[in-house]
Amino acid sequence: MEQKNGSSFTGFILLGFSDRPQLELVLFVVLLILYIFTLLGNTTIVALSHLDPHLHTPMYFFLSNLSFLDLCYTTSIVPQLLVNLRGAHKSLSFGGCVVQLYISLGLGCTECFLLGVMAFDRYAAVCRPLHYTVIMHPRLCALLASASWFIGFANSLLQTVLTFLLPLCGRNRLDHFFCEIPALLKLACVDTTMIESEMFFVSAIILLIPVALIMLSYGQIVTTILRIRSTAGQRKAFGTCGSHLSVVTLFFGTAIYAYLQPSNNYSQDQGKFISLFYTIITPMINPLIYTLWNKDVKGAMRKVLWKDYDSRRLLRKTL
Rank of each mutant, 00 (worst) to 15 (best):
I135E: 12
R227S: 08
T163P: 01
F61N: 11
G116P: 05
A255K: 13
H131C: 04
G170E: 04
F201T: 15
D269H: 04
Y290E: 07
H50Q: 14
T291Y: 15
A212S: 13
G6F: 00
Y278S: 08
C141W: 04
V126P: 03
Y60R: 09
L69Y: 04
G41V: 09
R122M: 09
P262D: 14
M301K: 06
L39M: 14
A124Q: 10
Q159Y: 03
V46Y: 14
Y309N: 07
T44H: 06
I214S: 04
E198Y: 14
L245P: 07
L130F: 10
L140N: 08
S267M: 03
L208D: 12
A154K: 01
Y60P: 08
V134R: 11
L144A: 14
G170H: 04
A300W: 05
F153Y: 10
M1N: 05
F201N: 09
D191L: 06
G108W: 10
S104Q: 00
I36Q: 08
I151A: 10
T231V: 04
T279A: 09
H50W: 14
T163E: 02
G239I: 03
H137G: 05
T240Q: 14
F17E: 07
F238H: 12
L25Y: 15
K186G: 05
L168T: 06
R302E: 12
S243R: 14
A119M: 10
F177H: 10
F12C: 02
L105S: 12
G116T: 11
L162A: 07
C72W: 03
N42R: 10
D308M: 13
A237L: 02
P210W: 12
L288W: 15
L245G: 02
L162V: 05
Q270A: 12
S7R: 04
Y132C: 01
I209G: 01
C169E: 07
V98G: 00
T193R: 12
T231I: 01
L27P: 07
S67C: 14
V304W: 12
E2Y: 04
R86V: 14
L40N: 08
S311A: 15
R235H: 12
A142C: 07
S263H: 11
A145R: 07
L187W: 02
V304K: 06
L101D: 01
G41S: 10
F200Y: 15
Y266K: 13
V98E: 00
P129I: 05
P53D: 09
L207W: 05
I181H: 02
T254I: 15
M215Y: 07
